[in-house]
Amino acid sequence: MSNTTHLGPVPQRITVDAEQVRRLVADQFPQWAGLPVRPVADGGWDNWTFHLGSEMSVRLPSAAEYALAVDKEHRWLPELAPRLPLPISTPLGKGEPGAGYPFSWSIYQWLDGEPAIADRIADPVQFAVDLAGFLAALQSVDTADGPRPGKHNWFRGGTLRTYDGEARRALATLDGHVDVDLAREIWKSALDARWDGVESWFHGDVAQGNLLLDDGKLAAVIDFGTCGVGDPSCDLAVAWTLLTADGRQAFRERLSVGEATWARGRGWVLWKTLVTCAHTVDKPTRRPRAHSASSAKSLPSTRPVAAPQRRWQRARRPVEASGRRLVLDVPRLEEALRLVARRHSGLRIYLLPDDCSGYPSSTASSTTAPP
Rank of each mutant, 00 (worst) to 15 (best):
L7F: 01
L7V: 05
G8S: 10
P11L: 11
D17M: 01
V21A: 07
V21Y: 00
V21M: 01
R23Y: 01
L24K: 04
W32E: 10
R38S: 15
R38E: 15
V40F: 02
D46L: 11
W48F: 05
G53I: 04
E55N: 12
S57V: 14
S57G: 03
P61T: 07
Y66I: 01
Y66S: 13
V70I: 12
D71I: 00
P87V: 10
T90C: 13
G95V: 02
G100N: 10
P102R: 09
F103D: 11
Y108T: 04
W110S: 10
L111W: 03
D112F: 03
A116E: 09
A116Q: 06
I117L: 14
A118E: 15
D119M: 00
I121T: 12
P124K: 08
V129E: 14
Q139H: 12
V141G: 06
D145N: 07
R148T: 13
G150M: 04
K151A: 15
N153Y: 09
T159V: 08
L160G: 01
T162L: 05
G165F: 02
L171S: 07
L171G: 02
L171Q: 07
H177P: 05
V178P: 00
L182E: 11
R184E: 15
E185W: 00
I186Y: 02
S200C: 10
W201L: 13
D214F: 00
V221Y: 04
C227P: 02
P232N: 09
A237F: 06
A237S: 12
A239K: 02
A239D: 09
A239C: 12
T244P: 01
A245V: 11
D246F: 04
R252N: 13
E259L: 12
T261H: 05
L274A: 10
V275R: 03
T280R: 09
P288D: 07
A290Y: 03
S292T: 10
A293L: 01
S294K: 08
K297V: 14
S298V: 13
L299G: 13
Q309G: 01
R311C: 04
E320Y: 03
G323D: 14
R325Y: 02
R332A: 13
E335Q: 13
L337G: 08
R342T: 14
H344R: 15
G346D: 10
L351S: 07
S361W: 05
S362L: 13
A364N: 00
S365Y: 09
S366A: 11
T367E: 15
A369T: 09
P371G: 10
